[in-house]
């Protein structure tokens, strides 16, 4: 790897990813940016949206942009943990049991429709997301480095689905809600090439080592007290808000700051700005705070972001 300045490298990764995403799916900047932040900050991504708006396509594009091992798990209610992690099978040729690695042993894992699977399988996935390792038959096996889970969820369907618990949502650094594309983007979609064909043209823009090095740099991004105070103020505001049943936890705040560090690194900065936090407040926090009425907390969180004063 050449010792290019971090700013240029982060910027080139960003440009490449944006180019790839732009070529395949018509996603707005507000969607793409949190995805990029998650990628460089080292977290997992949850894409929420109705079927048919390109969630899976988006996830596949991201996966293909990273030159690593890619696996896809289509969750259904009969997927068992062993299907995900792998299991020991009898090898007659060897005359003994041998462990066959499941689809989790990859760098980028696309977990499609996670709300369709049973809580047991989901918890297995969550453990893998949390620790970067799986425990099979008493052995702990390291997953790929980097390990990135891109999960999709379809909140509109209820038949044959399981509710994803709050703790599970907390494992995702960023949750992005996808909506119908705007008219221009959709028209361009109709007129354009087939998505699969476009996806075939995608070239990786970053390899695993580069991504790990980038993540090391993101770790080094500084958060000064004034910025941390801003994060604290907003987190406090979520806890004090009467309409919220559950405010943001310290872990939520840390995840938020991590994502913000990713944004700072992508911007070529060695320090986080309140702007980074503001930009990522909804993707990083909206799935971690819960309204009393069960509705999505995003609009309320948006109000809080607009009202919480930024420490100068």
């Amino acid at each position: 790897m050449t010792a290019l300045p971090r700013t240029v490298r982060a910027a080139s990764v960003r440009a490449g990813l944006e180019r790839n995403l732009g070529a395949v799916v018509a996603a707005p900047e507000a969607v793409i940016e949190p995805i990029l932040c998650t990628l460089v900050a080292g977290g997992h991504l949850l894409l929420d949206g109705i079927p048919g708006i390109g969630k899976t396509l988006l996830a596949r594009t991201i996966a293909q942009s990273v030159a690593g091992e890619f696996r896809r798990i289509q969750f259904t209610n009969d997927v068992m943990p062993g299907d995900v992690t792998g299991s020991a099978v009898w090898r007659p040729d060897l005359g003994r049991f041998a462990f066959v690695r499941g689809p989790l042993f990859a760098n980028v894992v696309l977990a499609d429709e996670i709300n369709r699977t049973s809580p047991r399988t989901l918890s297995c996935l969550l453990e893998a997301m949390e620790s970067g390792a799986v425990s099979v038959e008493g052995r702990t096996l390291e997953l790929g480095r980097p390990f990135l889970v891109l999960a999709t969820r379809n909140p509109a369907e209820f038949a044959g689905t399981f509710a994803v618990p709050e703790a599970a949502l907390d494992r995702f650094l960023v949750r992005i809600g996808l909506d119908y594309p705007d008219a221009a983007a959709e028209l361009a979609l109709y007129a354009g090439q087939d998505a699969e064909a476009r996806l075939a043209t995608i070239r990786p823009v970053v390899d695993c080592d580069q991504l790990l090095a980038l993540r090391a740099e993101v770790e080094a991004v500084q958060v000064r007290p004034a910025v941390a105070e801003y994060a604290y103020r907003l987190v406090q505001a979520t806890r004090a808000h009467p309409e919220l049943r559950l405010g943001a936890s310290p872990r939520a705040a840390l995840a938020w700051l991590r994502a913000a560090k990713g944004r700072a690194a992508l911007d070529g900065r060695g320090y986080v700005l309140p702007d980074d936090l503001k930009a990522l407040a909804l993707p990083a926090l909206a799935h971690r705070v819960f309204r009393r009425d069960g509705a999505t907390a995003a609009p309320l969180l948006g109000d809080l972001v607009g009202a919480t004063p930024v420490p100068l």
């Binding site: 700005l273 702007d275 607009g306 009202a307 919480t308 930024v310 100068l312």
Partner: peptide, 10 residues
């Protein structure tokens, strides 16, 4: 004047 929730860059 700085409005509520506005950052210096904004």
């Amino acid at each position: 004047s700085l409005q509520g929730g506005e950052t210096p860059r904004e």
